[in-house]
């Protein structure tokens, strides 16, 4: 982790500029929705096909006359089909859906020329712009074929720009933690086994311990992370259990008469 510490051009705080975004006014125009993206979308983009978002209500729409829909058949074998009746109107948007606008966004990618500052591309600004675009799209998911599709790939932003932006602010904390944990682990190993710090470095077990410490500091950053990790373990074995049920059933019941 010390790797990340050497001085990189440290202008990241300067570039977190938000005022320069022309669409800021637009963003403010759309009320912010929390949690449910679906609700936000169907109310915002004015497709006009669903007046309300309630699913239970059968949305008998006025436009249906214009767009004849023949529901030939519903699979009788599932109950869900009865609930999920057709809302099958043709896809017609009366109001053109809002489109993401930014002078630097052209032909499905960011025009890096416009991000140049002092001769180099200001990657922080690119990250900002892309985050903003994604946020906007999350609130107004729309036509995937606009501008012939998006070709912008976050991989073109060099790795050091990410490190500078997202790791360095945290690096101090993590480095400090790792050093503390490492020091005390070395201390305890020394006091328990009598192996000194220098000798510990020649020991495979101690090296492993060091690795575990660094990894632990990286993985567990907040207290909630422990819970999340536990959940993750449960989740990863859940499917196995579901599959094994067939065989466990037999084991539990003892040998079946065959």
């Amino acid at each position: 982790m010390a790797l990340f510490s050497p001085a990189l051009p440290s202008t990241f705080s300067a570039s977190c500029s938000k005022a320069q975004f022309p669409q800021k006014g637009r963003l403010a125009f759309f009320p912010k929705r929390s949690l449910s993206l679906f609700v936000a979308r169907s109310a915002d983009n004015g497709t006009g096909t669903t007046g309300s978002v309630a699913v239970e209500v059968n949305p008998e729409k006025k436009e249906e006359a214009a767009a004849p829909v023949a529901v030939e058949e519903k699979p009788e074998e599932n109950k869900e089909a009865a609930v999920l009746e057709s809302n099958g109107a043709t896809v017609k948007t009366e109001v053109p859906p809002p489109k993401f606008l930014d002078p630097r966004w052209a032909r499905g990618t960011w025009d890096l020329e416009q991000f140049r500052k002092d001769g180099t591309v200001d990657w922080d600004a690119v990250i900002d712009a892309e985050a903003r675009r994604r946020k906007w799209l999350e609130d107004h998911p729309g036509d995937s074929s606009v501008d012939g599709g998006v070709v912008f790939d976050t991989a073109i932003i060099p790795w050091w720009a990410w490190v500078k932006r997202f790791h360095l602010p945290e690096a101090e904390l993590l480095n400090g933690r790792a050093a503390m944990v490492g020091f005390f682990m070395a201390y305890f190993v020394d006091s328990l086994t009598g192996v000194g710090l220098v000798d510990q470095m020649n020991n495979f077990f101690c090296k492993t311990l060091l690795f575990v410490a660094v990894l632990g500091v990286l993985v567990i950053r907040k207290n909630e992370d422990v819970e999340n990790l536990k959940k993750l373990v449960d989740e990863s074995t859940f499917y196995d259990k579901q599959w094994q049920a067939t065989w466990q059933d037999e084991n539990a019941g003892g040998p079946r008469p065959e």
């Binding site: 004849p68 829909v69 529901v71 009746e85 057709s86 099958g88 043709t90 896809v91 036509d143 995937s144």
Partner: peptide, 20 residues
């Protein structure tokens, strides 16, 4: 349908299906 957008513009649904 919204995401498919223009690519299926003018589509007429003739059948709706749901299945578990």
């Amino acid at each position: 349908r919204n995401r498919a957008g223009d690519k299926i513009d003018g589509a007429v649904t003739f059948r709706v299906e749901a299945h578990p």
